[in-house]
C-alpha cells in the first residue's frame, strides 16, 4: 500500500481493507503516535467540507505531522485560473501526501496521475469518497465483531448517495444481505443491482421504513434531499416517510447500530440520539482512527 494513492474504493483489495481496519484499531487503543513527525500533509479543499477536513487534520495532528492547504478554492490560486494540474504539481513539491476534495468527478484520479506524491481522495463530486467507506467498514466491524454475513438496511437517497454505493461495493466481499429502503425516485440504480446479482448477493427493495428494519444488524441512513426531485410534489409526499424515530426501534435487534455519514438534517429524529443503538457520533470518531491508519499505511510508517 506504500505510496499507493487512494482514489476509489476499487483501488484496494479486500486484504488491504482489512489491514487498514487492523491498523485503525491500533490507533483507537493508542491514538497519539508521533510517527508523522517532520512530515507535511497538504489538505486541498477546492470546495468546503468542514467535517472531512477537520477529521483529516485531527488525524495528522495526532500523528505529529503538519498540515498545509486551503479550505475552499476562493482562497487559492484556482480563483486566478490555475489548472488543477499546475496546483497539484506545485503542491507535490511542498508535501509528502495530498488529501484533496474537489467538486468535479474524476479530479482525484487525474491528480493522482499528475502528482509526485500519493493522493487521498476526500470526495470528488458525486463519485467517490473512499475514506468514508473505510470508516464505515471500521464502524461495522467494531460494533458487530465481524464484517461477515450481516444484514444491512440502506435508507433514503440510494440513487445519488455515493456513500451507499461505495459501502455496497466494499461489503460485497463479506456476504451481506441488503435491504434497500427508498422512494421510487431514489431507488438503488440498476448497475449496482446487476453487480450484486453477479456476485450472488441477496437484496430486497422496499419503500416502507418502519416495517423493514427489524432484522437488520446495521441501518445506514442517508438524507433525502429536496433538490433531487424534479417534481416538488413528489418530494412533499415522501419527505417525512424516511425519518427514523425512536419508537421505530422497538423490536429491532440488540446488536443493531444506526450509522449516518453526517451531516444529519432531520432524517434521524433527535430522540434517537440517546438510544444506545445510535452510533453516528462514535462513527465520526472512528473516522479519525481510520484516516490515521490510511495515511500511516500510504506513507509506509505502519
Amino acid at each position: 500500500m506504500k505510496n499507493k494513492s487512494l482514489v476509489s474504493i476499487a483501488d484496494y483489495t479486500k486484504e488491504e481493507y482489512l489491514e487498514i481496519l487492523r491498523v485503525a484499531a491500533e490507533f483507537e487503543k493508542n491514538p497519539v503516535q508521533k510517527i508523522l513527525e517532520g512530515r507535511v500533509v497538504a489538505t486541498l479543499f477546492f470546495e468546503p467540507s468542514t467535517r472531512t477536513r477537520l477529521s483529516f487534520e485531527s488525524a495528522v495532528n495526532r500523528l505529529g505531522g503538519r498540515v498545509i492547504g486551503f479550505t475552499d478554492s476562493s482562497s487559492s490560486s484556482v480563483s486566478k485560473g490555475e489548472t488543477l494540474k499546475d496546483t497539484i504539481l506545485t503542491v507535490s513539491n511542498y508535501s509528502d501526501l495530498i488529501v484533496m476534495r474537489h467538486p468535479l468527478e474524476g479530479s482525484a484520479r487525474y491528480a493522482s496521475e499528475v502528482a509526485t506524491v500519493p493522493v487521498i481522495n476526500a470526495g470528488d463530486g458525486a463519485n467517490q469518497h473512499p475514506t468514508q467507506c473505510l470508516l464505515d467498514l471500521f464502524s461495522i466491524q467494531k460494533t458487530q465483531g465481524t464484517l461477515e454475513n450481516l444484514k444491512i438496511s440502506m435508507v433514503g437517497d440510494l440513487k445519488y448517495g455515493r456513500t451507499v454505493h461505495s459501502l455496497l461495493m466494499a461489503m460485497s466481499y463479506f456476504n451481506p444481505t441488503f435491504n434497500f429502503i427508498a422512494p421510487d425516485e431514489l431507488k438503488m440504480p440498476e448497475e449496482y443491482k446487476l453487480f450484486l446479482d453477479k456476485k450472488g448477493i441477496v437484496y430486497h427493495e422496499f419503500t416502507e421504513l418502519a416495517e423493514n428494519i427489524k432484522d437488520s444488524d446495521i441501518i445506514y441512513m442517508t438524507r433525502v434531499q429536496r433538490e433531487r426531485f424534479a417534481d416538488p410534489l413528489e418530494y412533499e409526499k415522501v419527505k417525512n416517510v424516511y425519518i427514523l424515530k425512536n419508537k421505530m426501534l422497538e423490536g429491532t435487534k440488540d446488536n443493531m447500530k444506526i450509522l449516518h455519514p453526517l451531516p444529519r438534517v432531520n432524517e434521524i429524529s433527535t430522540d434517537v440520539d440517546s438510544n444506545s443503538k445510535a452510533y453516528y457520533f462514535p462513527q465520526a470518531l472512528n473516522g479519525v482512527y481510520t484516516r490515521q491508519a490510511i495515511m500511516a499505511k500510504i506513507l509506509g510508517l505502519k
Binding site: 468535479l104 479530479s107 463519485n127
Partner: peptide, 27 residues
Amino acid sequence: ITNNENIVTRFSVLDRNGSISLKCNYC
C-alpha cells in the same frame, strides 16, 4: 474533470449484449 480541464479522455470499453459503452477512467 475531462470536460473541464485539458485532459486526454480514457475509457475502458464495456461490451454489453453487442452494444458498446464506455466507462470513464476518471469519473
